[in-house]
Amino acid sequence: MKLLSLIHPFLALLLAPLLLGVINRVKAVFAGRRGQPLLQAYYDIWKLLGKGAVYSRTTTWVFRAGPVIGLTAVISALMVLPFAGQSGVISFSCDFVVMAYLLGLARFFTIAAALDTGSSFEGMGASREAQFSALAEPALLLGLAALAVQSSSLSLSDIFTQLNLQAWMKVGPAILLVAAAMAVVLLAENSRIPVDDPNTHLELTMIHEVMVLDHGGPDFAYILYGAALKLWLFAALLVNVLMPVQASNVPVNFAVALTGMFVAAIGVGVVESIMARLRLLKVPQLLVGAAVLSTLALVLLLR
């Protein structure tokens, strides 16, 4: 484990809420508004941390455990993620499976916490979340399988080390397909348009936001922070796929990667601005489509 690997987690913890700000700013620009400050997410989290909490009498410890475990799981998942040419803090064969399952753990707790309120709205959201994530999982793991096959290696760090310009030259289309699949997974996992609308106020149509309706105060701060980190995580994956820069200069690498992160955030913002939300019944098609893209990539690679 190199000390440089430790930089990434700290960067993530520090900068993740900024991504939310970037996205919101892009959306505001598209809508012709001035929009929130870029650091709005930090303000929100800080403010929420200072507040008290209101708990429903129906809830139990599960409701309180949800945000904590959710955040913990995402932080732990960050540990295996390579960034800017640096390997993850921990790196071993199939570490991405651990990452995916840690996110699964977070989701399990979020859903359980939602069901703990006994509210029909939160139950609705939980049901949708369970459905969509069950479909996103194969897309993600197959996409990673494609990358693994491409690089003949099994840990995220090795995979992205192998994924260089030569690889792009050789099997560019396949990698592009994988990237597309990853992008869809990113949007779905982070409750972004076209899968979910984080800004909607109609509980009946929400997915992720409706599950956390009853959370408030520090709990909600954890949730918000966790969501930002999760966005960071997926964005970092996408950047790793699309921007295989491996200059020998570490600062340059980091600069490029960070730029990539913000480009990704802008991209998300653009998508959110120009697209409408899909009907809930269409979402599974999108996710299955992502899995198909991954499979196609595999076919191209194995040809």
């Binding site: 008290g52 909490a53 309120t117 006994g118």
Partner: peptide
């Protein structure tokens, strides 16, 4: 500072 209420 914890309050109890009904579910929203």
């Amino acid at each position: 500072n914890v309050e109890s209420a009904v579910t929203w």
